[in-house]
Simulated assay, not measured.
Amino acid sequence: MVSEAQSIPGWRHIYSGKVRDLYASEDPADTRILVVASDRVSAFDFVLSPGIPQKGELLTSLSMWWFGELSDVPNHIAEGEIPDAVAGRAMLAMALEMLPIECVVRGYLTGSGWAEYVSSGTVCGIPLPAGLKNGDRLPEPLFTPAYKAPMGEHDENITFEKTVEIVGAERAAQLRDTSLAIYRRASEIAEAKGLILADTKFEFGVDADGVLRLADEALTSDSSRYWDTAAWESGTTPEERMASFDKQIVRDWLAAHWDQQGEPPALPADIVEMTAGRYRELIERLRG
């Protein structure tokens, strides 16, 4: 369950997602949105407990760093002061018309993509060469969109053709091309720091002038899989090759201790501590 959002003077709570809370200004003339990252952690479309200490600050810091690295890509950041109550874990954002497409880019074979490949030789319906192993680099990064389901429902993988039906041919092509371009640039930056960006997901919105803008978060530990390059090159098992800097620790523990029926169990303290440590280590390595 998503916990109750905090009260912030001058701001009115309007929505809570799995991880973030959104607020509108009480000033009718101010159209900006306050995006507050919580310490909540989600997996398999469920919000888990307890949260990860300082996760909101870590995610916000990493998103802001990536927005800076990708400064030529239009994004949702707006100018202004962050309220003291949420300093360090909030962003001021433009009001956008959010597109209901989760723009997933996969550069490596892992996760649900690996499971599908074993079953059918495809990832999200896209045929791949035979003989690939778990964690292998794909011949080319794949754009595999998903339809963003309402809160409490599961997101649905969709084809590019379905994306065209939802947002139109021109916008769908723009989402695909922009997502792949960002992924390739971010991968180069990560590789220079000894990291592999295995996959990631982006969300986009459109401003009042029709400009497509990167929104929500950018290349964080929640939205992306990062691996250690040296471990990937030398590892002999999937576990060794895919040494993770994200919430994969949480996913793995949950998969081993829960059948995805009913409410998920509480995370043990050591899993929470390990996950927080990996989030911090990723930021330290990326930012140097």
Results as ranks from 00 to 15, higher is better:
108 Y>K: 10
82 I>A: 01
67 F>S: 07
80 G>C: 02
112 S>P: 09
79 E>L: 12
68 G>R: 00
100 P>N: 05
103 C>P: 03
104 V>G: 08
95 A>Y: 14
98 M>C: 12
85 A>L: 10
82 I>R: 01
117 Y>D: 09
65 W>M: 11
88 G>E: 02
88 G>Y: 06
93 A>T: 10
102 E>K: 01
88 G>P: 06
102 E>V: 11
72 D>K: 13
90 A>W: 09
85 A>K: 12
83 P>W: 12
90 A>T: 01
84 D>N: 13
100 P>L: 02
81 E>K: 14
82 I>T: 01
67 F>Q: 06
110 T>W: 14
81 E>W: 03
75 N>V: 01
65 W>K: 10
107 G>L: 03
103 C>H: 05
96 L>M: 10
112 S>R: 11
103 C>R: 01
69 E>L: 09
74 P>Q: 04
99 L>E: 03
96 L>E: 04
107 G>I: 00
73 V>F: 03
92 L>G: 07
118 V>E: 14
103 C>Y: 06
90 A>V: 02
114 W>K: 01
79 E>R: 13
81 E>R: 13
115 A>I: 12
92 L>V: 11
86 V>N: 01
90 A>Q: 05
103 C>S: 09
95 A>L: 15
70 L>T: 06
76 H>Y: 07
93 A>S: 12
74 P>H: 03
71 S>T: 12
97 E>A: 14
116 E>K: 09
112 S>D: 11
84 D>R: 15
108 Y>H: 07
83 P>S: 12
96 L>R: 12
72 D>W: 03
107 G>W: 08
73 V>E: 06
74 P>N: 07
105 V>F: 11
89 R>H: 13
68 G>P: 09
101 I>T: 07
115 A>K: 15
97 E>G: 13
93 A>Q: 06
81 E>Y: 01
68 G>T: 08
87 A>M: 12
107 G>S: 01
89 R>C: 07
81 E>G: 04
94 M>K: 15
87 A>R: 13
118 V>W: 00
80 G>I: 04
68 G>M: 00
109 L>I: 03
95 A>Q: 15
90 A>G: 04
89 R>S: 04
82 I>K: 06
99 L>H: 02
109 L>H: 11
98 M>G: 11
96 L>P: 11
103 C>F: 04
113 G>H: 09
95 A>G: 14
65 W>F: 14
94 M>H: 15
79 E>K: 13
110 T>V: 14
108 Y>L: 05
114 W>Y: 01
112 S>G: 08
83 P>E: 07
90 A>K: 07
91 M>H: 11
103 C>V: 06
102 E>D: 10
78 A>R: 06
117 Y>M: 06
79 E>Q: 14
78 A>S: 11
85 A>E: 15
90 A>Y: 04
68 G>Q: 05
86 V>H: 10
87 A>E: 13
115 A>S: 12
87 A>L: 12
89 R>Q: 03
104 V>R: 09
113 G>Y: 00
85 A>G: 00
114 W>Q: 05
91 M>V: 10
108 Y>I: 09
67 F>N: 04
